[in-house]
Amino acid sequence: MALVTEEVRAKAEIYYGAETCEEKANGLLKEMEMPNGLLPLDNLEECGYDKESGLFWLIRKERIEIFFEGSDRLVSYEVLVTGYIEKGKIKKVSGIKSKEFGFWVPVREVYVHDPEITFKGPAGVSRTLPISAVERTS
Score class of each variant (00 low, 15 high):
Phe67Ala: 10
Ser71Asp: 10
Glu33Arg: 11
Met32Asp: 08
Glu69Pro: 01
Arg60Met: 04
Leu29Met: 12
Phe67Asn: 13
Asp72Met: 10
Lys24Pro: 04
Gly27Glu: 15
Asp50Met: 02
Glu45Gln: 13
Ile66Trp: 04
Gly48Ile: 03
Lys51Arg: 14
Asp72Leu: 03
Glu33Asp: 12
Phe67Gln: 09
Glu46Ser: 06
Leu39Ile: 03
Glu31Pro: 04
Gly37Trp: 01
Leu55Cys: 04
Glu33Phe: 01
Leu28Cys: 09
Asn26Gln: 13
Glu31Phe: 00
Gly54Phe: 01
Leu41Asp: 06
Ala25Ser: 15
Gly37Ser: 08
Tyr49Cys: 08
Met34Arg: 08
Glu65Ser: 11
Ile59Val: 14
Ile59Gly: 01
Lys24Met: 12
Leu28Pro: 06
Trp57Gly: 09
Glu52Cys: 00
Arg63Phe: 01
Asp72Cys: 08
Lys30Cys: 00
Gly37Asp: 08
Glu52Asn: 06
Gly48Asp: 04
Glu31Ile: 02
Gly54Lys: 07
Lys51Asp: 10
Ile64Gly: 06
Ile64His: 05
Glu69His: 06
Asp72His: 09
Glu65Thr: 13
Ala25Ile: 10
Asn36Gln: 13
Ile59Glu: 15
Gly27Pro: 05
Glu45Leu: 10
Ser71Val: 03
Arg73Glu: 15
Glu65Trp: 00
Leu29Glu: 08
Leu38Glu: 08
Lys51Asn: 14
Phe67Cys: 03
Asn36Val: 09
Gly48Trp: 02
Asn43Ser: 13
Thr20Ala: 14
Arg73Met: 15
Leu28Phe: 09
Tyr49Lys: 11
Pro40Phe: 02
Leu39His: 05
Ala25Met: 15
Ser53Glu: 10
Phe67Val: 11
Asp72Ile: 01
Gly54Met: 03
Cys47His: 07
Leu28Gln: 11
Lys61Asn: 13
Asn43Asp: 15
Ile59Tyr: 11
Glu52Lys: 12
Arg60Leu: 03
Glu46Trp: 00
Ile64Ser: 14
Phe67Trp: 11
Ser53Phe: 01
Cys47Met: 15
Met34Ala: 05
Tyr49Trp: 10
Phe56Pro: 06
Leu41Gly: 10
Lys51Met: 11
Leu28Trp: 12
Ser71Phe: 00
Pro35Thr: 07
Glu45Asp: 14
Asn43Gln: 14
Lys51Pro: 14
Asn26Trp: 00
Glu23Asp: 13
Arg60Glu: 05
Asn26Arg: 15
Leu44Ser: 07
Leu44Arg: 06
Glu52Ile: 03
Asp72Ser: 13
Ser71Gln: 10
Glu52Ala: 15
Leu41Trp: 04
Asn26Lys: 14
Trp57Asn: 08
Glu69Leu: 05
Thr20Glu: 15
Phe56Thr: 11
Arg60Gln: 10
Leu55Ile: 09
Gly37Lys: 05
Lys61Tyr: 00
Asn26Gly: 09
Glu65Arg: 12
Glu69Trp: 03
Asp42His: 11
Gly70Pro: 08
Asp50Gly: 01
Leu29Tyr: 04
